[in-house]
């Protein structure tokens, strides 16, 4: 009997309570998303969304970039997300390697910092970063957002990659080294390809963390505006384009996940 069969047997007890809980919970998590998608097609008199159904329209999708502030904020968010994910990958991968493959002084200390970095409340991180920038007299803006986003993304990247590395083992690398490969080329020809799923995953995680962050960014944004800041700041009502952006990102993300799932099913390892 394989592990999976044993596992499945535990689950074979009759019962509908657990599936019912699962599906009710999933339905609830999707309620605001369904509302978002539906209302992105509602005519919004005065350019602000209303409860009342005024009729179907594609106008806001066609005029997505008309709301210049929103469009710019979206671009700023995307640029910061991509840059911060790239930088945290470039500095986080070596750190993860160091933590996983070597024993050295300060290792547990760095691991502790990573841990605290992930678990510190966003509001404290934001406030602390702003107080730091104030004391060193650095003006807040695009640069400070990027600096801080990398600072929290590195921790996520390191934890994700390290867990992958420890699951991967060093057998192949040792084999390569026995065959006379030098460590650096071996790293790029053996470790990196093996680690690729983890690299992609941590890049996407960092991207998501950055693009969705409101709390920390609200402190260090200065005169820059990111997508969440714009949305949160829309105090005079929500422009329908915000819902269009949300819908497009959601649909694109869902499609990516589907495609990814299909790919992985073929080549599941």
């Amino acid at each position: 009997m394989t592990i999976e069969e044993r596992r499945a047997r535990i689950g074979r007890r009759p019962g509908f309570v657990l599936p019912a809980i699962y599906w009710v919970v999933i339905a609830v998590t999707l309620v605001p998303i369904v509302a978002m998608i539906a209302y992105s097609f509602n005519i919004a008199p005065n350019h602000r969304i209303t409860f009342v159904w005024h009729g179907f329209t594609l106008a806001y999708y066609l005029h997505l970039t008309d709301l210049s502030g929103l469009w710019q904020a979206f671009l700023v968010s995307v640029v910061i997300a991509v840059l911060s994910a790239l930088i945290s990958l470039v500095i986080g991968l070596p750190l993860a390697l160091a933590l996983d493959r070597y024993r050295f002084r300060g290792r547990s200390l760095i691991w502790g910092i990573v841990f605290v970095d992930i678990s510190a409340p966003s509001i404290v991180v934001g406030a602390a970063s702003l107080s730091f920038f104030l004391t060193i007299n650095l003006h807040t803006g695009f640069l400070t957002i990027l600096l801080v986003h990398v600072a929290f993304n590195v921790a996520y990247v390191v934890v994700t990659l390290r867990s992958r590395l420890s699951g991967m083992g060093t057998v192949l690398e040792e084999a390569a080294s026995d065959l006379g490969a030098r460590p650096i080329p071996a790293f790029f020809t053996i470790t990196v390809p093996l680690l690729m799923p983890g690299i992609v995953a941590s890049f996407m995680l960092a991207l998501t963390m950055s693009i969705d962050d409101y709390v920390i960014t609200s402190f260090v944004a200065g005169s820059s505006t990111t997508f969440p800041l714009f949305v949160y700041g829309a105090k005079t009502g929500m422009p329908p384009q915000v819902l269009c952006f949300g819908t497009i990102i959601f649909v694109a993300g869902a499609l990516l996940a589907l495609a990814n799932g299909a790919l992985n099913r073929k080549s599941s390892f």
């Binding site: 547990s108 691991w111 502790g112 841990f115 992930i118 996520y156 934890v159 994700t160 990659l161 390290r162 867990s163 992958r164 699951g167 799923p197 983890g198 992609v200 995953a201 941590s202 996407m204 995680l205 998501t208 993300g253 990516l256 996940a257 990814n260 799932g261 992985n264 599941s268 390892f269």
Partner: peptide
């Protein structure tokens, strides 16, 4: 390794595995 691909583009289970491995020792 079925959970490896949970919305790979999204939240990686490795993150949570990593988090659940951490142990704080008194010396640490």
């Amino acid at each position: 390794m079925s959970d490896g691909d949970i919305a790979r583009g999204h939240i990686d289970p490795g993150l949570f595995r990593g988090l659940t491995q951490a142990r704080l020792s008194r010396r640490g």
